[in-house]
Design a protein around this nucleic acid. Structure first.
Lengths: 148, 148
DNA sequence: GTTTATTATATAGGATCCTATATAAACCAA
DNA sequence: TTGGTTTATATAGGATCCTATATAATAAAC
């Protein structure tokens, strides 16, 4: 029986960590013109690929309107470009601009350093354990979202 | 060397889990007139206590303006009440209304069930390990936030 | 081939969070 | 006591996410 305690149950701990990661990430990426919401897009289009909004939303696990807004902000800031899909008049193919693409290695390095610092004192086994437990948790949460 | 992969590093897994928890929580609490942002407030004021906004923000680990907005929405919805602090003219003491207070046991039960379902298949040891690792991670993140 | 259903985006409205800054009360030092 | 600092809230502006719904183009059915 879990007690009504903010620290003995994973959800509040995960919420705190997610907000801390977002604050730090925004702070570190700000100078380069990025925000944490851009990261899944940068990751998915890192090799210069183009893909429709729908795919980006699916891989990033955000709802379609969330991705639409993120892409609108990124387009406004010159980070992505949309070209009409020649095979589907409803769809556009999104890709990073040359400027954004050029910055992805630096973003990657910043994230690597941040992750390293956040995991200071963790053994490789502990990191692997944490990731494995989080993956199992995410699978359960995905199932709960589907049910009814 | 972590690779540029969304699933081998804790941050994206934590972000996904946090959003999944928030979606589920909002869905389950909606019928009772609550949202996930209310939870730290409900927890901290669960015994009928009154405390200033500053304390609520500190314990919930959100910035003061975030707590101010959450309380404004909760006051608008009749969930909290503010009375001027007799000892400090700048401050108000926030407490739950009788209606909100009456619902906290049901909220607690809904959260308990949700947590149980999210942790389906986890042994008690695994839950404890996950919480311990998350607590260590949060301590590191707190340190990183302080550093300049 | 027209009608209907599905699918890709867009828009509306709102919750939750953030940073930066303004305001007002309280405290403290001269 | 007055003037400067600290402290509690409030406000402004914006990012990220959500649900619900509208629009437009494709696909499927008849």
């Amino acid at each position: 029986m879990i007690d009504w305690n903010l620290f003995s149950t994973p959800a509040p701990l995960i919420n705190m960590a997610a907000r801390a990661f977002a604050r730090l990430g925004d702070r570190q990426l700000k100078g380069m013109g990025f925000g944490v919401g851009h990261l899944p897009v940068l990751y998915l289009l890192r090799d210069g690929a183009a893909m429709p909004q729908k795919e980006l939303a699916r891989f990033a696990k955000v709802e379609q309107p969330s991705m639409a807004q993120t892409l609108a902000r990124m387009e406004r800031d010159g980070l992505v470009r949309r070209v009409p899909d020649p095979n589907d008049g409803r769809s556009s193919l999104v890709s990073l601009t040359a400027e954004a693409l050029a910055k992805t290695p630096a973003v990657r390095e910043i994230l690597r350093q941040g992750s390293e610092q956040a995991l200071a004192g963790f053994s490789q086994d502990e990191v692997a354990t944490l990731c494995a437990l989080l993956q199992r948790l995410n699978r359960n949460l995905d199932l709960m979202a589907v049910e009814e």
